[in-house]
Design a protein around this nucleic acid. Sequence first.
DNA 1: TAGACTTTGTATCTAATGTTACATAAGTAA
DNA 2: TTACTTATGTAACATTAGATACAAAGTCTA
Lengths: 211, 211
Amino acid sequence: MIEVLKANYGHLFEEALLQEINQVGTYKEVSEGDHLIDIGDYVKSMPLLVSGAVKILREDEEGDELLLYFLERGETCAMTMQCCMGMSKSEIRAVAEIDTILIMIPVQKMSEWIAKYSTWRDFVFASYHNRLNEMLETIDRIAFKNMDERLLAYLKEKVRISNDNTIHSTHQQIAYDLHTSRVVISRLLKTLENMGKIELHRNHIKVKKFD
Amino acid sequence: MIEVLKANYGHLFEEALLQEINQVGTYKEVSEGDHLIDIGDYVKSMPLLVSGAVKILREDEEGDELLLYFLERGETCAMTMQCCMGMSKSEIRAVAEIDTILIMIPVQKMSEWIAKYSTWRDFVFASYHNRLNEMLETIDRIAFKNMDERLLAYLKEKVRISNDNTIHSTHQQIAYDLHTSRVVISRLLKTLENMGKIELHRNHIKVKKFD
DNA sequence: TAGACTTTGTATCTAATGTTACATAAGTAA
DNA sequence: TTACTTATGTAACATTAGATACAAAGTCTA
């Protein structure tokens, strides 16, 4: 595991910390669609992403979902950090967007290392920083943009995250992420197809170009 | 200033830190409506709220606003902390909601104290924690709630923050905070009045009861 | 008090989004 | 192939919110 660690976090963490992570961390592979955390779960470990991507979702009382943002290689979940520190329940759901490799760190180490390693402290602060900014962008999108623009941004993000021009989702799945109805998504996708930006197929969407 | 500090932050910070804050911090009084930070400003100091309340706003390219959340006594602005650490421009606007007293801490102290004082570190983490949660609540409201529910929540929050059953705002000001139009707010307020929950007057709204 | 300005009330229309219903197409399994 | 399931296309309609226009009421000042 130490090689994987150094490849992905070597530039961030000091040697002694890398060694400690190697000792107490657990290597974990998850498949696309696997739930890493659900709302209400007590979180016992904190994930460091080695490869892949994880989508973070919010849910309301009625079970309606909304995609908050994606986590990528070299990132961790600020929401999870909070839970670790405060021993509170998770406010979000984390689902593997594609096949993903993680290193799981036990909760207790989290705060121990903050006092011990300045590079860890910087990493934790940077994670909070990034997450707050992602949340701001999420708010911008849902508050200031119409559904057509949000859908376009979503498709772009999917392509970028998976590094694949073909998006393997049904219209219903997209509708869940954007918190709208399938019919609305079908309608808007059809418009995008007529504009020549995408090609619609059963179970997948081929992205041809974006301006 | 030291008495004020101890009264508001004595339970949070260790003695030595309180002394340092007393030395380098600046006492500042602002009036309702004063702008503390605008979008694009470089932030040179970090505010600790002693009394009053500050509203934090987001703005899009066209200048449309949206209220994110309120800061209260004993809190600080996580967005500002970020800017302090990264020396980046402010992503938000901060406006005094009511007359407010602050202690301003110079940027450099921010990270210095993180290494030096564990109570400061805890405070900074707790601030990030709280801010992330407020952002989540904000997202919940704009993503999952209709304007009538958002308005009601807004009115309740105003009453709580100012500790005053009468809200001294025009319909236009409320519309800015909720990122909608004055006509929509007038319409919904009238409905609330007909339901007996509020009384409408020129330049102020008297909140009679909430269920 | 007259006029100017601000704030609020309301009607009408439009746009965006959500809902329901149903047809059709594509894949899957017996 | 046939039957079944899932996904998509589309029409018709409802609801929410935004835009425009204008009247009426309150406030302020010359």
